[in-house]
Design a protein around this nucleic acid. Sequence first.
DNA 1: TTGTACGCGTTATCAA
DNA 2: TTGATAACGCGTACAA
Lengths: 329, 329
Amino acid sequence: MNITIYDIAQKCNVSIATVSRVLNGSSRVSEKTRARVLQTMKDMGYNPNPFARGLGLDSMKIIGVLCTDVADIFYAHAVSLIEDALRTHHFDVMLSNTGNDNGRSSKYITELTAKHVDAIIIIGTPFSTEGDIRQLRKTAESIPVITINSDYHQPNMYSVVCNEKEGMRQVVHALAAQKCQSILYLYDALTYSGRHKLDGFRQGLRDQGLRDQTERIRQVPKSLEGAEAAIDKVIAKKISFDAIIASEDVLAVGAQRAALRHGRYVPVVGCNNSILAQCATPTISSLDNKLRSLCTAAVDIIIELMAGKDVPIRTEFNAELIDRESFKR
Amino acid sequence: MNITIYDIAQKCNVSIATVSRVLNGSSRVSEKTRARVLQTMKDMGYNPNPFARGLGLDSMKIIGVLCTDVADIFYAHAVSLIEDALRTHHFDVMLSNTGNDNGRSSKYITELTAKHVDAIIIIGTPFSTEGDIRQLRKTAESIPVITINSDYHQPNMYSVVCNEKEGMRQVVHALAAQKCQSILYLYDALTYSGRHKLDGFRQGLRDQGLRDQTERIRQVPKSLEGAEAAIDKVIAKKISFDAIIASEDVLAVGAQRAALRHGRYVPVVGCNNSILAQCATPTISSLDNKLRSLCTAAVDIIIELMAGKDVPIRTEFNAELIDRESFKR
DNA sequence: TTGTACGCGTTATCAA
DNA sequence: TTGATAACGCGTACAA
């Protein structure tokens, strides 16, 4: 069995209360006994039992982190950043991967709350159905819920987002400045982020007085093959284009490859600024959604909430276009 | 406050003991009361408090998963696979990212054990110093430690590996069959996996009666730029080569790009079979280390261990070369 | 400054 | 088949 405060107390000829006080620093303990207790704690290799502590405080300093797929390079990066930031505040991360079984995502939330995590960070948009969102709202009643790149507008939920709509608008402007008139737009899903990017794209077209053509906006599976097939199809249909924007780097890579295969050398812009964009030849420009800022902001919100401070219900960052080879014509 | 078994007991006019029995299924309870209890549990929205349960059982059905960097596509994929597998067995994942602060990695283990996780899965080689390994051994005395792609040979530790040495040997053979005689080898670190791959490379050379030339074996930073710089240097030094092997896909991508920039079109082979290899042009062949098998095996070991079964202390899989465009000459 | 005693929600061990 | 009750380890009013 493990060492408990009883063992320490006995060894030091004090009560468990004193040991507990030393443990929590706060209350006044004489310097002499404090030193003695701390020493024997080290000697005996004591560490507090989190279950017992959690039972009383109903907190185990664990944050639930929820996303659709940690294997995805974007989410993985986010999880990594969040974990690092939380660690500095002595919080642990309980990971929950919803996968894509939409409509039943609420069960992951339920499981997480059943574990009594102190707060939940949600990356992306795993929840979309009415039932899921109802469950989410209910969860938010008991613990803070921080969302990254989505916004459910519910009480006790805090949203951290990147203004990708505006970013995408500027991408269109930048392409237009290079005389691109017929921009192909590939996207995989209309999540919060996906919708805003598409909106920004359309807004950009309008700004430039360009027509918003449905045939140049195409939904594709989130994979290299999905994007390649889409480009093949567009070319087969003789739909003209002089630039490609993709809502995900992986799509941009696939699209560029297919275009080059057909001898079409056009500017390609992806999103998320992941390493995939740099692996392609030519390297692909990408709209950076400031993941690091988003993640540290999310963690900061949790820390401040725990400290009883007032925090903004919405925090917004700017996107930034990272210019690479593929951007030139 | 939350619903407890006391509430349920009161509502049903039974004792908490009975409720607890219903909860744990095992003991004999009359069918009538069982049904009644289950019903009221549903009605009142009861779910057991994991702290209290953990306090009694000293287990909260949480597995600690430890790796150097979840942001790395390889580890991210591993974590994802492990999480999925554990979830089906109702275990949760506590994530721990050591980063690269070598020599102090033991503190992550300490923190994890302090949280009383039921077992630890270690991916890769975050531990190398004597102190770290001593700590690891100590941890293994109290809970099972499963390592993926490393082997510390300690009691109560279970090792799951891929035979990348043999795989790499066969890569050399395959290249030799294409008349490649001067193979460049790039690696980033001599972890367990890194050592074995390098050993396999050398073994392959010997098999083929080729010389093992130090100048063609180069350590580089794990990045596109690192690999590119290395190739630039090799070419500047006029070291000849007719093929490139890299211990990581990302290095392979960078190396191929640099080589192509110099007009050198040679076969390139990476490792881990990640999406990076598919993003490059031409697509890069890669030695698949069977990550899925490794991860499910690791989880299976935990499950069987918990069930008191006897499990092998070492489980080994074969690597497999995935052939892509870059393999042809 | 220190000690006593209770509560936290479950599981497990006795009795009944 | 049930019920009463003692752990489990810690935090903390309240008392001294």
